[in-house]
Design a protein around this nucleic acid. Structure first.
Lengths: 192, 192
DNA sequence: CATAGTCATGGCATGTCGTGTCATCACTAT
DNA sequence: ATAGTGATGACACGACATGCCATGACTATG
């Protein structure tokens, strides 16, 4: 018991994902997860704010990634140019390090549970806030910054979904650019 | 006690909103709400699936409104034309019947509580799904339907927020159209 | 080598949420 | 009248989440 369970967090994440796939999210209790990971219930809530968070660990850094990405981009780019050129590489960076299989299993769990879908929406909302702030820092006015941020996140989200639906082929940057092209085509029909 | 507490639902909504404003959402317990409304805790959960839903009653009909609105629009309109012409009146219809004061108080509560912001995001997600289905029913391909739906909902959401920020003046349709104009301007910078 | 300090964990108590179940009462239809 | 319907009351209960304190393992310092 004392200190240190190396990888306790990782074991909890793994046990939780397995159990969610086997039995469903609602049917799985926190004591079941901690029993499989060899820990106690109280410890689970020290690592994760609530039961859902065990599926979203590590995504706290995404807003920072977004902010850094925007700060490093050439200041001369307008918001729409930045999206067109930067969204695909940024998307690749966000998913880097996670296997396609893990992402597919994780999404199966999330899709099956409304409470988890809500949490997923919040993730994208946080991304949009970071993007919006980044645009404002580049001198874009508030309304345009918000619109551009939401446009980018929406495109990213739809592209990521499509990418998983087609099991990773074509790859994510290509899918993002296809989705951007479709968005461009759609909005061009408005410019009359 | 037997049957019938006329307006039980409405009294619960009113008591809940008041208490949330006085003490905050988390600090307010369901027994406190039901005590103020003269009912029991069990009855609360017969009217609302969970504590948050008391703030979202009546919004189940929004997806149906959206579907009807789209079905009634001229079939000749393309997705972007439909948004340009239909979003402002549709937005007006959605908020019709609720006082600006109620909407502002309600938003103050929602903004203060992450769990309620998540629920709000789900509401817009449901709107987008209804819109997407509507576009598909009009013969639009899947990707374009999804993009157009998300674009419309995003514009609506941003416009509604701005409208409340400016306390209702200018009115919602005007604000929607201003927001649409800004979106048009933003995306036009992409059409090179 | 000893001692104090730090930190993840265990264990316990507690409050709130949300649901299942059954009884009861008011009103309605026949 | 009598049976049916539907909202409510009352109770039990499990799961989630948090506060609090104790403990044991590792670390730093003398």
């Amino acid at each position: 018991m004392g200190r240190w369970q190396p990888g306790a967090r990782e074991r909890l994440e793994q046990a939780a994902l397995d159990l969610f796939l086997e039995q469903g999210f609602t049917e799985t209790t926190v004591p079941q997860i901690t029993a499989r990971a060899g820990l106690t219930t109280r410890t689970f809530f020290r690592h994760f704010a609530d039961k859902r968070e065990v599926l979203f660990a590590g995504e706290e850094s995404v807003p920072e990634q977004v902010a850094r990405f925007m700060a490093e981009a050439p200041p001369s780019l307008g918001p729409m140019e930045l999206i067109t050129e930067g969204l695909a590489p940024a998307a690749a960076e966000i998913f880097e390090g996670r296997s396609l299989d893990y992402l597919l299993r994780r999404r199966a769990v999330i899709d099956a549970e409304p409470a988890l879908r809500e949490r997923e929406l919040r993730k994208f909302s946080l991304m949009a806030e970071a993007l919006e702030q980044g645009f404002r820092d580049r001198g874009v006015d508030d309304l345009t910054a918000q619109l551009a941020a939401e446009l980018a996140v929406t495109t990213f989200r739809i592209a990521a979904t499509r990418w998983l639906n087609q099991h990773g082929d074509p790859d994510l940057p290509a899918t993002v650019n296809q989705t951007l092209a479709a968005m461009r085509h759609l909005t061009n029909t408005l410019s009359t």
